[in-house]
Nucleic acid binder design. Structure first.
Length: 320
DNA sequence: CGTTTTTGACCTGCGC
DNA sequence: GCGCAGGTCAAAAACG
């Protein structure tokens, strides 16, 4: 099964981390993903099926990012962000060797979920009529529901603060020591009722200055801290806002469209050109288009303004 | 007093 | 079956 992966890495001007495969952020990312390895080749190897997409998107988006990020993500002042669709991916600091299972096991988990979805519907129906009688049964039922994992996205952020402001309100519900790491992992849930989004925050063992934030799920509500600007037609047609997906509420939008496309790759270029999959916003070429863009998603993006509406001030949408 | 954080206990999945 | 590690729960404490 070809599991698709979305990877984007960004940074802002104020960050002293480098830009490119040979520079520190990549090795940082790589360390994060692969443990020991630090080469770009290894990075691509890790990404497997999505490797050409990954390299393209990384290179394509990076040049546009630095001037954008400070205003788009003011709360991520020194940011090196990697977003990755993590359904097949674990934040384990363990090297992803065949023995490690951190990647493969998560992948099979996602697979199993997919495969059991239909079967689960029947079971669910049955469960609805058959109420659990004991606390134990209730817990077991709860647990079985909990096992259904949403795709996850990880962000690597160079920050001294562990819990970064991202426009949403979170409640911490747990903290665990991480094996082979001196830094604990914190677990947060979105405080909004009926919103099941979770995030995990931990420091990179290899680079303590990097905070790894993993989002899981999709917000069912607008950000309580950031007003939702109106997405105008002109705004949606503006180039260079492609990088807005890198702001902290990215997971919501990514997942939103991820689901809209029923596990199709996220369509970045619709943010750039309002739905035309062929537009070239940077001049350097959105090579990832050939992997990202599907005609059907253009209308979807216009219907659901998602991320832009959530986090990009309207004046920015117009001025870019 | 309501909300959030802390933290030990518990559950689950996985490898051996 | 057992042990380990990740993830979650929930009562108590802390906070505003």
């Amino acid at each position: 099964m070809d599991v698709k992966k979305d990877v984007v890495k960004m940074e802002d001007n104020s960050s002293n981390i480098g830009c490119g495969f040979s520079s520190s952020p990549f090795s940082g990312i790589f360390d994060f993903c692969e443990g020991e390895k630090s080469s770009s080749l290894g990075f691509m190897e890790l990404l497997g099926a999505g490797q050409d997409f990954c390299t393209n998107s990384l290179f394509d988006y990076l040049p546009q990012t630095p001037s954008m990020l400070p205003s788009l993500a003011p709360n991520f002042p020194k940011t090196s962000i990697m977003a990755k669709e993590c359904s097949d991916y674990s934040l384990n600091q363990q090297p992803a060797t065949p023995n490690s299972s951190s990647i493969s096991s998560a992948s099979s988990e996602a697979l199993n979920e997919e495969q059991t979805d239909n079967k689960g519907a029947a079971d669910q129906d049955e469960e609805e009529h058959d109420q659990p009688k004991t606390k134990k049964e209730l817990k077991a039922k709860k647990a079985s529901q909990k096992r259904q994992r949403e795709p996850r996205f990880a962000f690597m952020t160079k920050s001294e603060v562990d819990h970064l402001e991202d426009g949403y309100r979170w409640r911490k519900y747990g903290q665990k020591a991480v094996k082979n790491s001196p830094f604990p992992r914190s677990y947060y849930r979105c405080t909004s009722t009926a919103c099941n989004v979770k995030k995990r925050v931990e420091r990179s063992f290899n680079d303590p200055s990097i905070v790894v934030t993993t989002y899981e799920g999709q917000h069912t509500h607008p950000s309580p801290l950031i007003p939702r600007p109106t997405l105008t037609a002109s705004a949606s047609a503006q180039p260079n806002i492609s990088t807005t997906f890198a702001v902290p509420s990215m997971p919501r939008t990514l997942l939103s469209h991820h689901y809209q496309q029923q596990l199709q790759p996220f369509n970045f270029c619709n943010y750039v050109n309002g739905g035309s999959p062929t537009a070239n916003a940077s001049g350097t070429g959105f090579h990832s288009e050939r992997r990202f863009c599907t005609p059907a998603t253009g209308s979807a993006m216009l219907t659901d303004h998602g991320l832009l509406q959530d986090i990009v001030p309207s004046h920015m949408l117009k001025q870019e």
